[in-house]
C-alpha cells in the first residue's frame, strides 16, 4: 500500500502546483475540486473517516461551489500575467520553509499516541461512542461553540456586503434534466443528511457532514428555482441561521445554571443534549452555506438591494 500512498501524495503535490500556476481560473477551480477528492483519499489512508467525509463535502464540493459562484464576477478567462519568473527571494524563502518543516517533522518520535488513551477512557461518560464526536461536542465543546459562531459571523459578513447572486442563479436554466434530477435527489439528500447526523454519535458522521449535505440539497433546489426561498421570510431565515449557536449557548447556560461548568454534561442526558445541539447546528450550517453561496437569501434584485 506504500505505492498507493506515494501516488496519492505525488498527485496532490502535482495538482496543487498545477492549479496554482495554470493560466485559466476555471481550470484552477476544476483542479482544486480534484485536489480535494485526493485529500479525502489521503484522510481515509490516515484512518480519519470523519475528516474524509467533511473534506469531500465541505472542503472540496462546497469550496468548489463557492469558487465557481465567484468566477461569475471575475472574467473566467482572466489570463495570468506574463511577467518575469518567480522572484528568487520568495522562491528561496518558500523552499527553505518547506525543507525546515519537513526536516523538523522527520525528527519527530516515531510513536506518539497523544491524548488517545485519555479520550478512550473518558468517552463512555459522554453517551456517544464516536471519539471524534465526543471531542467535538463534549471534551472540547467550547471550540465547536466558537466555530458555530465563526460560521454565523461569516454569513453576517457576506449578507452585509450584499453582492449580487451569481448570474446562473438569477437566470436559471429551465432545463428539464436538471429539475427532474433535483426532484429525484432532494429527498435522498435530506435522508442522507439525517442519517449522517444520527449515525455521528457512534460512527463517522455528525453535524458538519450532515449540514453540508443539507447545504448541497438547498443549493441544488436554488439552482432550479429560488421561489421556495421567498416563502421563508427574512425573519425566519435569521432564526434558522442563529439556531445552532442559540441552542449551543442555551445548553451552555443550562449546564452553568445547574451548578457545573460551561458545557459540562455527562450521564444519561448527555447524548440527548449532544443530539439536540447537533440537529440545530446541522440546520444552521446548511442554511449558512447556502447564504455563503448565494450572497443573500435569493430575493435580491439585480442592484443587490433587498426587495422584501
Amino acid at each position: 500500500m506504500i505505492a498507493f500512498d506515494f501516488i496519492v501524495a505525488a498527485g496532490m503535490l502535482l495538482l496543487a502546483w498545477h492549479l496554482l500556476s495554470c493560466r485559466d481560473l476555471f481550470q484552477s477551480v476544476v483542479l482544486f475540486i480534484s485536489f480535494g477528492l485526493l485529500m479525502a483519499l489521503a484522510w481515509v489512508r490516515l484512518n480519519a473517516p470523519d475528516i474524509a467525509l467533511a473534506e469531500a463535502a465541505i472542503g472540496s464540493a462546497m469550496t468548489g461551489a463557492l469558487l465557481l459562484a465567484a468566477l461569475d464576477e471575475f472574467k473566467p478567462s482572466a489570463k495570468r500575467r506574463n511577467g518575469p519568473g518567480p522572484g528568487i527571494a520568495s522562491l528561496l524563502f518558500c523552499g527553505a520553509l518547506g525543507f525546515v518543516l519537513a526536516f523538523a517533522l522527520l525528527k519527530l518520535p516515531p510513536e506518539a499516541a497523544g491524548l488517545r488513551d485519555a479520550a478512550a477512557t473518558e468517552v463512555s461518560k459522554t453517551g456517544v461512542s464516536n471519539p471524534v464526536t465526543a471531542v467535538l461536542l463534549s471534551f472540547r465543546g467550547y471550540d465547536t461553540l466558537l466555530e458555530i459562531g465563526v460560521l454565523l459571523m461569516a454569513a453576517l459578513a457576506v449578507l452585509s456586503l450584499g453582492n449580487r447572486p451569481p448570474r446562473f442563479v438569477l437566470a436559471p436554466s429551465r432545463s428539464l434534466v436538471l429539475s427532474a434530477m433535483v426532484r429525484f435527489l432532494l429527498p435522498i439528500l435530506v435522508l442522507a443528511a439525517g442519517y449522517l447526523l444520527w449515525v455521528g454519535a457512534d460512527a463517522p458522521g455528525g453535524a458538519f457532514q450532515a449540514g453540508s449535505v443539507l447545504a448541497g440539497a438547498f443549493i441544488l433546489a436554488a439552482l432550479v428555482d429560488t421561489g421556495w426561498m421567498s416563502r421563508v421570510s427574512d425573519r425566519q431565515w435569521r432564526w434558522i441561521l442563529a439556531a445552532g449557536l442559540g441552542v449551543f449557548l442555551a445548553a451552555g447556560a443550562g449546564t452553568m445554571l445547574s451548578g457545573v461548568s460551561l458545557l459540562e454534561y455527562r450521564g444519561a442526558t448527555s447524548k440527548r443534549v449532544i443530539l439536540a445541539i447537533e440537529t440545530a447546528a446541522a440546520l444552521s450550517i446548511g442554511a449558512t452555506l447556502l447564504i455563503l453561496f448565494l450572497g443573500g437569501t435569493g430575493r435580491m434584485d439585480t442592484d443587490g438591494k433587498d426587495d422584501s
Binding site: L66, G114, L115, A119, V132, R140, V150, L289
Partner: peptide, 17 residues
C-alpha cells in the same frame, strides 16, 4: 488520536467560512 481529528474538522469549516 481523535483530538487533532476534531481540530482539523473545525479547521475545515472555518476555512470554508
Amino acid at each position: 488520536d481523535p483530538v487533532p481529528h476534531a481540530m482539523v474538522l473545525t479547521g475545515i469549516v472555518v476555512s470554508v467560512s
